[in-house]
Design a binder for these strands. Structure first.
Lengths: 203, 203
DNA sequence: CCTTGAGCTGAACAAGTGTTTAGTGTATTG
DNA sequence: CAATACACTAAACACTTGTTCAGCTCAAGG
């Protein structure tokens, strides 16, 4: 039990969990209250409104995720995830949903991880472990997209891998093809790339 | 105007659009009816329930997407998208939302595009244009993830590229780093890959 | 012509929603 | 000790939701 927490905190935690699981629209105040072991009225009393509760949750999740990413010097999503699969996944899912709803906090999160991703690349280039890119910012966005997409993979996609539902196993299995892609790409020559470059220079 | 369509079709089209834009839970029958220029009661009359409407929409979108992907011999998502950005995007978004809700139709869609993606890779390997993979299925899933993720990119992510909202420009800009990744990867050597392989053989 | 049936509607209904209100108990404080 | 403030609740409220119902319109068929 987490009953030694203040009621406000219990409500917030329950809300984060339900928002992450069901989405903001589908999750309702009474269910959140029940999960926190309090009345629905208390939720409103403490947070003003469901929207107010959301704002607090947004900021809390943002803070937790950023603290985490700061803790791991060189952010390694896979390792970070494996350390606390359920908790981390819940928070990432929450943020992904916030991004879908285009919540203001999501922008702060995105700005931050894109910047971090770009910096990792910059360091990698400086250290000689990574190739330069024609568009570092776009590359960072792509990397963020891949990381988040992998972590929040829809069940239907996980099922095509044989896993009944997403879990550490799924992620582990995806890790190798991903690293293979990142080490030598997929195409055997640069014809497709040159074709695109030619096409772009024409228009 | 699309008033020459039957009312049922107009309702279905409006529903697909609103489900894609707002999600199933947030979109409400009255709004769909209004968008189709009919009464809310008619929606229920024709489709039995909101859930019934969803089923019809699911199957419709699935059919449209599969027909499209069949039309383009070698499916090229980028080109396919550029041909009819708004329409295609709407349907992909719809499917992505269906995947998030884990709708049965989404599974059919996923099975299909993963299989297609795997076949493209197989053909590429046979033709010598693509490298072999240690896990073709997982690679296919990764590729689908990247494609869908890019297409349904959240606004917050698009904004870090300077674009106010997602559109053809965003996609065009991402195309090059993506192709660069697919032609020569990102890492300059295979140390990270070997490290992972070693780690996996140990456990 | 009239009957039938299908497309269609406004109004009502029942359930679920976020929120308000009025009030309880329980500490803390002057 | 009295008073104030705070955490908390049950019940009610207002509104939205999906859905039902009774009835309208109107073209097709006997």
């Amino acid at each position: 039990m987490s009953s030694d927490l203040t009621a406000q905190a219990r409500i917030r935690n329950a809300a984060v969990e339900l928002f992450a699981r069901d989405g903001f629209a589908k999750a309702n105040v009474r269910a959140i209250a029940a999960a926190a072991g309090v009345s629905a009225a208390l939720v409103i009393h403490h947070f003003g409104s469901k929207e107010g509760l959301r704002t607090v949750c947004d900021e809390h999740v943002l803070e937790v995720l950023l603290r985490r990413s700061r803790a791991a010097g060189q952010p390694d999503l896979l390792r970070e995830y494996l350390a606390d699969p359920d908790g981390y996944l819940m928070h990432v899912r929450y943020m992904t949903r916030a991004m879908a709803d285009d919540a203001p906090t999501a922008q702060a999160f995105v700005d931050r991880i894109v910047a971090e991703s770009e910096e990792i690349h910059r360091n990698g280039v400086a250290a000689g472990t990574m190739r330069e890119s024609s568009d570092p910012r776009a590359l960072a966005v792509l990397n963020v997209l891949i990381s988040l997409g992998t972590l929040t993979m829809p069940p239907a996609l996980a099922r095509t891998l044989g896993d009944e539902k997403f879990g550490p196993d799924t992620l582990r299995r995806l890790a190798k093809p991903t690293l293979e892609l990142y080490t030598h790409g997929l195409y055997t020559d640069d014809a497709p790339l040159r074709a695109l470059e030619k096409e772009m220079s024409e228009s």
